[in-house]
Nucleic acid binder design. Structure first.
Length: 385
RNA sequence: GGCGUCGUCGCCAAGUGGCAAGGCAAGGGUCUGCAAAACCCUCAUCGCGGGUUCGAUUCCCGCCGACGCCUCCA
């Protein structure tokens, strides 16, 4: 059985879903820019996670969102003088094409914020019934005080959060009448740009609301695995927990929280604001998809990963060598013992790809036909042959 | 301030309570008209100080240091 590190409990626990599919939700992209290696690493990590579960007989129901309405899309659309919907659709297509080239195990559902407004309203109504929403002139807010465990995921104290919020530019944009400076918008009343009618007035949804309501809509009140980049822990995932657990009165909202470490360039996290990104598209110009998968997955997913051209280049040789050693033959069921079993066990041990690949690379040139077939199975789970 | 990752050969990076993977670079060699490629060989007492132990790089405590995140962000 797969064992995974859970950010909330800060320990490794087995992923159990007896008699049903494992439910997994991963925070996706806001499509206004091209897919970079950080996106690819994160999504390939959950691709691998799903493949491991499925290969070991555990069906998976995987949902991922596309934030197709967001201030950043509106800004980019204005800058480039294109319609925000047009921009979003174009960038989403590009992103899906990039991921397809990486042989991404696509989510079973890819949902869009603009298509889920009814689900969002339902969630806000549920929060209202719990007394966990209040309306101010500039928006409907969630009172953080309604959630006694707020801060559990990130480990931040209330004082620490407030200290952080004081220095933020966005804090000035929030409604000054909030009961607590940590309270966040469920729905914003805005006049400019695209807006939607809601029971509270025209406006746009708060971005934390999107994920909570989509999860509830597509997967239910509680899920097995919630994933995303480590940069989303606070405030995004913390706020999701607050909304969802308050609305459903069920906890935990997600049994396991899996966060992928940052992809860095020059010692700094790749990010849109810093512009220090390496795009998947460009990487695929100098290497091939299997090699890029090998490169991105051959570092433990929770660790930060410094992009290194030399390593990327080497990955091509490694993938080619594995291809030569394992050939194109059939996959074989992994037996109870032997290198393929050891490699598969490594994958099940909090996705230890490094150990698994090392075993496969060592065993592949030495293996007989039957064993090679087993090794192919593991190599194909990782997607490197 | 908090959360987190990490300090292992010149560089990247695994790993283990008992001789420290691998890759790149470097040096030597085989081969070659010279070279390239290929192949072979060589190359580390694991940040500092305590503790536990027969024995710690590996476990515990403290320290020093690096970096990231906490702002939209995967």
């Amino acid at each position: 059985m797969l064992r995974l590190y859970d950010t909330r409990r800060r320990a490794i626990h087995p992923v159990r879903a007896p008699g049903r599919a494992v439910t997994m939700y991963v925070c996706g992209v806001t499509p206004y820019d091209t897919t970079h290696l950080g996106h690819a690493r994160t999504f390939l990590t959950f691709d691998l996670l799903a493949r491991i579960l499925e290969a070991t007989g555990h069906p998976v129901r995987y949902v991922q969102n596309v934030t197709d309405i967001d201030e950043s899309i509106l800004q980019r659309a204005a800058r480039d003088n294109v319609g925000w919907r047009e921009l979003g659709k174009r960038e989403e297509r590009a992103y899906l094409a990039d991921m397809k080239r990486l042989r991404w195990r696509r989510p079973d559902v890819i949902c869009h914020a603009t298509q889920e407004l009814p689900a969002m309203f339902t969630l806000v109504r549920a929060l209202e019934r719990r007394g966990a929403a209040y309306t101010l002139p500039r928006g409907v807010y969630f009172p953080v005080a309604a959630q006694p465990r707020y801060g559990e995921l990130s480990g931040l104290s209330a004082a620490a959060m407030k200290r952080i919020l004081v220095g933020q530019d966005d804090a000035k944009l929030e409604d000054p009448g909030r009961r607590d400076p940590r309270d966040f918008a469920l729905w914003r009343f805005v006049d400019d740009g695209p807006t939607w009618p809601s029971p509270w007035g025209r406006g746009r949804p708060g971005w934390h609301l999107e994920c909570s309501s989509m999860i509830r809509h597509h997967l239910g009140d509680q899920i097995d695995i919630h994933g995303g980049g480590a940069d989303l822990i606070y405030p995004h995932h913390e706020n999701e927990i607050a909304q969802s657990e308050t609305a459903s009165r069920k906890r935990p909202f997600s049994r396991t929280w899996a966060h992928v470490g940052a992809m860095r360039l020059g010692g700094k996290k790749m990010s849109k604001s810093d512009g220090n990104m390496v795009f998947v598209r460009d990487a695929l110009n100098v290497t091939d998809p299997r090699a890029l998968r090998l490169y991105l997955l051959d570092r433990h997913y929770r660790k930060p990963f410094d992009h290194d051209e030399a390593s990327l280049d080497r990955a091509r040789l490694r993938a080619a060598a594995l291809g030569d050693a394992l050939g194109r033959g059939r996959s074989g069921a992994v037996g109870r013992a032997g290198p393929a079993r050891e490699a598969l066990s490594a994958l099940e041990d909090d996705l230890n790809v490094v150990r698994a690949l090392k075993i496969v690379e060592w065993a592949a040139p030495r293996a007989e036909a039957a064993e090679r077939a087993e090794l192919r199975t593991v190599a194909r789970i990782v997607g490197v042959i």
